[in-house]
Design a protein around this nucleic acid. Structure first.
Lengths: 111, 111
DNA sequence: GATACCTGTCAGTATCTTCTGACACATGGT
DNA sequence: ACCATGTGTCAGAAGATACTGACAGGTATC
């Protein structure tokens, strides 16, 4: 799924940007670029606590940058496999101006 | 100045993303897309305190998304005019993987 | 000299995000 | 039954960021 940066709302653009704007999450995306993986293994690979990884993945998935699905392994364990959504985010001043015009709900309201 | 997203370091990519990943700063960029402005006027336009705007602008400028210069008006006042740097940031999984490989100094060190 | 603009910075507070550790549940093998 | 593996969630500590208000300095006009 490709994220269209044209005709995007400010809120969505912001969600995409905040999802990416964190060192751990960049590392996660880089790790997933090598292929899909399940959560516990990924947590071990990156030396990150599982609850923390869970939170970061939730953030990435909410932004549509990552996809996941439950699978049952041969030995019966339920495992969540995570993979990248092949996104493409193109940001320019014009894109931002358009997005903000489409609406940006921060806690700050304009008059 | 266009920010090349290819062959960028993880640290630089992160700085660019964190600079953009904030509602106020998106609004600032959108406002500056209409043309350059000086700080106090811009603060009034966006109903934002001047120290706060100052901080956001510093962040945007450090990331190379905005440029500024001091000018002296006809009536002798020193004014800082701010304008957009026409950036273009293209983010894909490949770009992120490459950037992280180029180095990402978070507070987290890998073994 | 007081006022009205402009500039910048600082300390302290408030708020949000990140992170840890503990808990609960499920399955299969020893 | 117990241990090892997987899943998820929660409360609270820790840390980073955003934000406010007050201060300092500058020049020109009344």
């Amino acid at each position: 799924m490709v994220i269209p940066t044209d005709d995007i709302t400010g809120t969505d653009l912001l969600q995409t940007l905040t999802a990416l704007a964190h060192p751990q999450r960049l590392r996660i995306v880089a790790a997933l670029a090598e292929g899909r993986n399940y959560v516990s293994q990924l947590a071990r690979d990156m030396r990150m606590s599982r609850p923390l990884l869970h939170m970061h993945l939730a953030r990435l998935e909410a932004a549509g940058l990552v996809r996941s699905e439950m699978e049952v392994s041969d030995d019966g364990k339920a495992m969540r496999y995570v993979e990248l959504a092949p996104f493409s985010v193109h940001v320019t001043p014009e894109v931002i101006a358009g997005a903000v015009a489409q609406g940006l709900d921060s806690t700050q309201a304009e008059e």
